[in-house]
Design a protein around this nucleic acid. Structure first.
Lengths: 195, 195, 195, 195
DNA sequence: GATGAATGAGCTTTCATTCAT
DNA sequence: GATGAATGAAAGCTCATTCAT
C-alpha cells in the first residue's frame, strides 16, 4: 500500500508545489491580494484545492515565503556574535531587503491590516523581529546604533521602503535602505539639534 | 435667468465642498479605498452626485488633497532660496510628512499601481516632484546632499515610510524619515566604503 | 421635484412588492432557505436589489409575513378580555395555525436555529409570545388550562405541528392542534398518573 | 483464498460499524445534515469509504437508526395484545419519542421533503406506521382513541413535536406529546362541540 | 475495499457604476 | 444638476461527489 499512498502523496506534493509556484507568480503580478480563483486557475486546479492546502490566504503567503523567512532567521543566528555588530545588522538587513525586493507585494502584505494576514504578522513578530532584535541590541550595546531604534520599527520602515513601483525600482529601494541605516547609526535621529 | 444659474452654480459649489469635506473625513477613518456610497452618505448627497463631480476615485482624492499639495508647492517656492539648502529640504520634507501622516491610507494610495490612481501619480509627478527637485538640487549644489539622491526616489521613499500600521505610528514614521534624510546627507549612500 | 421623487419611490415600492410576492412564492415552493438569487430572479431584479431592500434573509421573511403577524397580535388584544379564556385561546391558536399552515416552510423557519433567522425569532419572542402569553395566563387563571403550559412552549409545539408534508396536510395539522389544546386543558399533562 | 476474503469482509464490517458509531455521534452533535467529511473523519476513514458503504445520506441515516426502529417495531409486537390498548399506545409513543428526542435533527429529517430523505420516509411508512397502526386500531376498537386519528398522522405529529430548539427542550417535547395523546383519547378532536 | 486529493457548482455578500426621473 | 434604485460582476468559502492509485 505504501507505494500507492506514496504516489498520491507525491501527487499532492506536486499540486502543492504548483500552487506555490502559481501563487508566487500571481503575487508578483497582482499582489498578495489576488483572487484565490486566479491562483487556482494559474495552477490549473480548482479553488477547493487551494483551500485544501492553504485554509486561508495568509497560510499561502507564508508558505510561499517560508524558505526566505527561515533563511533570514538562520542568518541572524550566524551573525549574532559578529565582531562588528553594526556591520552585522547591515548585512542582515541587506538580506532582508533582497528578500522583500524580489517579492513584489510582500511589503504591502506586511503592512496590510487586513485580518486575513494576521498569521503573517504573527510570523513576523514571532520569528523575524526577535531575530533582528538580537542584532539591533548588539549594535546598540556596541554604540553602533541609535538606542531609540527598535527592531520592529526598523523592520517596518525597511519593509515600507521595499514597496516598489514604476520609477522606484529595486536599486532605489536598496539605496534608500542603506541611507536609512546610515541615519540610524548616528546617536540622535537628526544630524543636528533643531532650533 | 442668470441669477438662477448663478444660484445653481453656487449650489453646485456647495455640494462640491460638502463632498470634499466628507471625503476627507471618510479617507481619514477608512482609507482612500472607502466605498463611494459612504462618502455620498456622509456628504448627504446621492452617489450619482459624487460621480458627476468626480468621475473617478482619483479625481476625488486629488481634489481632497489639492490644498495641501498646493501648500507644499508654495512652501517649496518659499524655501527655494534659503541660505541653508539642506535645512530647507529637511523642513520641506517635514511638511510633506506631516501631510501624509495625517491622511490615513494616502501613503498606500501613492504607491498603489492600481490604474485608478494614475492621475494621482501624475499630480505628484507634475507638481510635487518638481517642487521638491528644486530643493534637492540646491542641497546637492551646496554639498549638503548625496548627489545620487533624486527628488522622485526621495519622495517615494518618504511616502512609503509614512505608511502606518499598528505598532508603527506617526512618530515612528517621522523619526524614520529624519534618519533617512540624515543618511542622505552623507556623501555616499553607505557610511563607509565597502571592502 | 415631489412628483419625480414620488415616481421613483413608487417604483421602489413596486419593486419591494414584487420582491415580497416572489419571496412568498419561492418560500412556498422551496422553503425559506431558498437562495436569494432565485428570489431575485423570480422578481425579475438583480440580487443587489434584494439586499438593498432586505439586508438579511430574516428581514425578508419577516416582511413577507408581517401582515399576518400583526393580525395575530391584534387578535390577541381583542380576545384579551373574553368571557371564556379557554375558548379565546383556542380561537387565537386557530388563527395562528391558519397563518402558519398557509405559509409552507414558515414552521421550519421558526424552529431553525440558523443564525440568519435571529430577527425572526426575536420578532416571535417580542410580539407573538407576549400576545399569546396574555391569553394563556387568563386561561390558567380561569382554571381552563394546565398551569404548567407556557406560551412559548405552546407556540413552539403548535408551530411544529404545522410543519406539513405529503400525507400530513393542513387539516391533519389543524386537527392535531385541536387535540393538543384539548390535552392542555386537563389539569395534568397526563390523563392519569403514571404508576 | 476464502479465509482472506473472509478477513476482508470482516474488515469491511468493522469499517461499517465504525461508520455507524461515528455517524450516530455526529448526528447527535451537529444534526443529520452534518458534512459527510466530518463523519468520515470521526470514523477514521476516508470519505470514499462512506460512499462505498452508504451511497446516499439517507442510507446512512436509516442504517444508524435501524436498531432503534427495529426495537420500536418489536415493542409494538409485544404490546399488540395488551389488556389496555390506550396505555399500550401511550407506552409505545413514549418509546418512539425517547428515540426521536435523543437524535438531534432526526425530527427535521423525518419531515424534510428533501429528495435525499425519500428512503427514510419509505422506511417509516413500511415499518413504523404499520407497527403503530396495530396499536392505534386496538385503541380505537377499545374506544380509547378518537377513531379519526390515523397512525400516520399521529406519528407525523409526534415527530414534529420532537423537533427541539433553544427554549424547547426534551422535556417540553415529551410533555407536549403526552398532552397531544390525552387530546386524542377524547371521542372528538375538540373538547366541546363548536357552537 | 479503502483512500483522500481534486473538482466545481452553488451560495452569500459587497460595491462600482449607470440611468430614468 | 441631483437623486438613489437597480444592476451584476467579483470574490470568498463550503461541500457533495468522483476517481486514480
Amino acid at each position: 500500500m505504501s507505494p500507492e499512498v506514496g504516489a498520491r502523496e507525491a501527487g499532492a506534493r506536486r499540486t502543492r508545489e504548483a500552487l506555490l509556484t502559481a501563487a508566487a507568480e500571481v503575487f508578483v503580478e497582482r499582489g498578495v491580494q489576488a483572487p484565490i480563483r486566479d491562483i487556482a486557475a494559474r495552477a490549473g486546479v480548482g479553488v477547493g484545492t487551494v483551500y485544501r492546502h492553504f485554509p486561508d490566504r495568509a497560510e499561502l503567503v507564508i508558505a510561499v515565503y517560508r524558505h526566505q523567512i527561515d533563511a533570514c532567521v538562520a542568518l541572524a543566528d550566524e551573525l549574532e556574535d559578529a565582531s562588528e555588530p553594526g556591520r552585522a545588522l547591515e548585512e542582515w538587513i541587506g538580506a532582508f531587503v533582497e528578500f522583500l525586493v524580489t517579492k513584489h507585494g510582500l511589503g504591502v502584505a506586511l503592512q496590510s491590516d487586513d485580518a486575513g494576514f494576521q498569521s503573517l504578522h504573527s510570523l513576523m513578530l514571532d520569528k523575524l523581529v526577535p531575530a533582528c532584535g538580537v542584532l539591533v541590541d548588539a549594535a546598540v550595546a556596541a554604540d553602533e546604533l541609535d538606542p531609540s531604534v527598535t527592531a520592529y520599527a526598523l523592520m517596518r520602515a525597511v519593509g515600507n521602503l521595499c514597496i516598489l513601483g514604476p520609477g522606484y525600482e529595486r536599486d532605489d529601494a536598496k539605496a534608500m535602505v542603506v541611507r536609512l541605516l546610515a541615519g540610524c547609526r548616528l546617536t540622535d535621529g537628526r544630524s543636528e539639534p533643531a532650533t
